[in-house]
Design a protein around this nucleic acid. Structure first.
Length: 564
RNA sequence: UGCCCCGUAGUGUAAUUGGCAACACGUCUGACUCUGGAUCAGAAGACUUCAGGUUCGACCCCUGACGGGGCAGCCA
């Protein structure tokens, strides 16, 4: 664990081991590249919901700003009206806030910089560094060259500055059809780096923008716009993922040609998590084709999905800390994430008993009713205790009884004894079955000398099981989630598409579960540990005034076998 | 085939910048336990992709090979 005393006034002198980005920043600070300033940003395109990979980026970028006492911007990279929507903007703001990324009042939009970008483009045209090209998409592709051959220069490449200025202005005015013209940077059609082969800066798109409406019909491409956005905002370190590494020379080229503030782009490896997919395109497909119930389906690796599943922002931040940051691509084991949430919830979640698949038990020698005392959280005594009603008719977990137990099974068996959590030790005297031979009820006797907390028990039993008083039980629906895919890397197969690896059992709904009565007034989103099962939270979507629905966040670690 | 990036226990990251490869997760023991959880104690697991070179000394620097990833959208 990181040393809490090390909350650095000066991260450069921190003893905590740092990732390579911190090393770069330390060096920049030492050389006074931008004085003592550190300013990062998270620049999502509002074309989908944020996923856990974005969360890693947010934690990284915000974490840097926090550690160096710098600033962190949330900026929407909304340069493509065809894919972007206000719904996504809203969800992204909510998710970044929830994760704790503090952008203060800086919710920024690339589209607010369009006019400035346009002027800079004019400047490049005047310098003879950009030109209007009449080639269409196919022609541009076919003249770009390939891996071994250089591209061919466009016949329109050497238009006069005046003609370019005129044409570019008319592009803006809407005189031309989509795709009929582009503005290109004049760099080098023979560059071994494709990005430098006269990249496109503007394309014509007659489409309504979610914020600019119909103000523009030409839109800047990512390559042209991104560095300008960072520059305008005074970003010092423009942190992005590996696939933009080849774009850095172009990023640098534009900024140098313009002679404006020049952030340092730094690339790191995006997160890949086992048993899920992380591309927005694929997640969109899961949503659109109804393989899941929306972006916030608890099986989705989206921030909203994890939130609904019961993950805490702390656990996700801690996960980001645990996995670190590096440049080599990796496939992170989902076990690391599960560790992070268990670690958090173990310390903070209220305990309760819940019987997922009830089996009736009658305690033949018990008369009356009493309240027993349960500990709310053994990790945190300050959370106190609660009353648990006990009667002669209870329900236990079907899986806690076996007629022919394998070796090592220490729960209830015919003639055997177990402790009922917080109650008594009971002995199974009789097994009652239905016509099909299924066990439908157990008859037990209890030992009055063994009540929890009395210290009067001389007996020792190997197992303790949970239970619910039949009379007081509250019914609930419990949703058990399993991994969405059956293989570690669903999108790695060259023949099969990722959908072929969908886990048909990723959701199991139990509608006869019984829970402790005190849970009746649980708030939506409330998190609990159902003892011996795992962590659960009250679903925010399906819970109604008269029906509680719980999502299983994660199971408890289980060294016996599969829980539930 | 051209260019760029990357190769460290099963997984993810470290290694004071050239000095006996460390941490977390996971796995396996054992202790404890009224959650088969947690906690505690311990163990196994790495010729640092390979081959050369520089050096007293290389995970680190150099060369080459091999392996992985990225790039030929008017997506980001």
């Amino acid at each position: 664990m990181s040393n809490p005393n090390n909350v650095n006034d000066n991260p450069a002198e921190s003893t905590k081991s740092k990732n390579f980005i911190y090393e770069i920043i330390d060096e920049d600070l030492k050389t006074n590249k931008w004085g003592s300033k550190v300013h990062t940003r998270f620049p999502p395109e509002p074309n989908g919901y944020l996923h856990i990979g974005h969360a890693k980026s947010i934690c990284l970028n915000y974490g840097i700003a926090r550690d160096y006492k710098g600033k962190f911007n949330l900026r929407f990279d909304d340069t493509n009206p065809e894919k972007e929507e206000q719904e996504y903007v809203d969800s992204i703001i909510e998710d970044v806030k929830w994760l704790g990324g503090d952008f203060e009042d800086r919710i920024l939009f690339a589209s607010d910089y369009f006019e400035r970008m346009y002027q800079w483009a004019v400047e490049l045209i005047k310098k003879g560094k950009a030109y209007v090209d009449d080639l269409n998409a196919d022609e541009i592709r076919s003249t770009r060259g390939n891996l071994t051959e250089p591209g061919k220069e466009s016949p329109y490449r050497n238009r006069s500055v005046d003609e370019n200025l005129d044409l570019f202005e008319r592009m803006r005015k809407g005189e031309f059809l989509n795709g009929s013209k582009t503005l290109r940077a004049k760099i080098d059609m023979a560059s071994p780096n494709f990005n430098m082969r006269d990249p496109i800066m503007y394309r014509i798109v007659h489409d309504e923008h979610h914020r600019q409406r119909n103000k523009w019909c030409i839109y800047p491409t990512y390559d042209w716009a991104h560095g300008l956005e960072d520059s305008i905002e005074g970003i010092t370190h423009s942190i992005c993922t590996l696939e933009f590494e080849n774009h850095r020379p172009l990023y640098d080229w534009f900024l140098n040609e313009l002679g404006i503030h020049h952030p340092q782009q730094v690339e790191f490896a995006r997160l890949n998590l086992s048993y899920t997919v992380m591309s927005k395109r694929k997640l969109l497909q899961l949503v659109k084709e109804n393989f899941v119930d929306g972006w916030d389906d608890p099986r989705m690796p989206t921030v909203s999905g994890f939130r609904r599943r019961g993950y805490t922002p702390e656990s996700i931040r801690n996960f980001a800390e645990i996995i670190g940051v590096a440049k080599r691509d990796a496939l992170t084991d989902i076990a690391l994430l599960e560790y992070a949430i268990r670690d958090d919830l173990n310390k903070h979640a209220q305990r309760a008993m819940a019987v997922l698949r009830p089996l009736k038990v009658v305690i033949t020698n018990y008369v009356g009713e009493e309240d027993l005392e349960g500990v709310n959280n053994p990790e945190d005594q300050s959370m106190g205790t609660r009353k648990i009603p006990f009667t002669n008719e209870i329900y236990i977990e079907q899986t806690d009884f076996m007629e022919n137990p394998p070796k090592g099974f220490h729960r209830l068996v015919p003639g055997g004894e177990v402790r009922l959590r917080y109650a008594y030790i009971v002995k199974c005297e009789e097994v009652i079955k239905n016509g099909k031979g299924e066990v439908v009820e157990l008859r037990c006797t209890y030992d009055p000398e063994t009540r929890s907390g009395t210290g009067t028990s001389k007996k020792k039993v190997k197992g303790t099981i949970h239970w619910i008083s039949a009379k007081h039980a509250l019914k609930a629906e419990i949703r058990l989630y399993d991994r969405l895919f059956t293989v570690e890397a669903p999108d790695a197969d060259k023949e099969k598409g990722f959908l072929e690896f969908l886990n048909p059992n990723s959701l199991e709904i139990l509608d006869n579960a019984l829970i402790e009565p005190f849970l009746k007034d649980s708030k939506r989103g409330g998190r609990f540990q159902f003892e011996r099962h795992g962590y659960f939270c009250v679903d925010t979507k399906f819970t109604t005034d008269d029906k509680l629905v719980f999502n299983r966040t994660v199971t408890l670690k289980d060294s016996w076998g599969k829980t539930s």
